[in-house]
C-alpha cells in the first residue's frame, strides 16, 4: 500500500515539474509582459503545488511544513502577480501589438490610490 502511494507521489512530482517547465517556456515565448505574467505565475503555482503534494504522499511524516508551504504559495503567488501587473501598467509598459482592448484608464485609478497612500 505504501509503495503504491509512493509511486503516485512520484508521478505527481513529475507532472508538477513538467508544468514548471511549460511555465518557463511560456515565459520565454510570450510576446509581452502581461502574457508572461499569466503563463509564468499560473504554471509555477500549480507546478510547485503538485510537486510538494507528491512529496507529501512520499513522506507523510513531513506533513506540517509541506502543508504550510503549499498554503503559503497558493495565497501569495496571485497577490504578487497582481501587484506586478498593476505596477507595470502604472509605469506604462506597452502591451503587444495583438492587443484588442485596453479599458483601464490610468489617470482615474492609479493616481487616486497613490493620493491615499500620501494622506496616510
Amino acid at each position: 500500500m505504501g509503495n503504491i502511494l509512493e509511486i503516485i507521489g512520484a508521478v505527481l512530482v513529475l507532472l508538477g515539474s513538467v508544468f514548471l517547465f511549460l511555465g518557463a517556456l511560456g515565459l520565454v515565448r510570450m510576446p509581452d509582459l502581461y502574457n508572461r505574467i499569466q503563463a509564468g505565475t499560473k504554471a509555477s503555482t500549480l507546478g510547485t503545488f503538485l510537486t510538494l503534494f507528491g512529496l507529501l504522499l512520499i513522506i507523510p511524516e513531513w506533513w506540517g511544513k509541506l502543508v504550510l508551504l503549499m498554503t503559503f504559495i497558493l495565497i501569495t503567488n496571485p497577490v504578487s502577480s497582481h501587484v506586478l501587473a498593476r505596477a507595470a501598467h502604472y509605469i506604462k509598459i506597452p502591451l503587444t501589438d495583438k492587443t484588442v482592448a485596453d479599458l483601464l484608464n490610468k489617470e482615474e485609478t492609479t493616481y487616486k490610490v497613490n493620493e491615499e497612500i500620501k494622506n496616510e
Binding site: 515565459l27 509582459l33 505574467i37 509564468g40 509555477s44 507546478g47 510547485t48 510538494l52 504559495i73 506586478l84
Partner: peptide, 14 residues
C-alpha cells in the same frame, strides 16, 4: 526581470 525572478524562486522552492 522581476517576473522571471518570481517564477525562478517559486520553481526553486520545488
Amino acid at each position: 526581470r522581476l517576473v522571471a525572478f518570481d517564477v525562478m524562486t517559486v520553481s526553486s522552492l520545488a
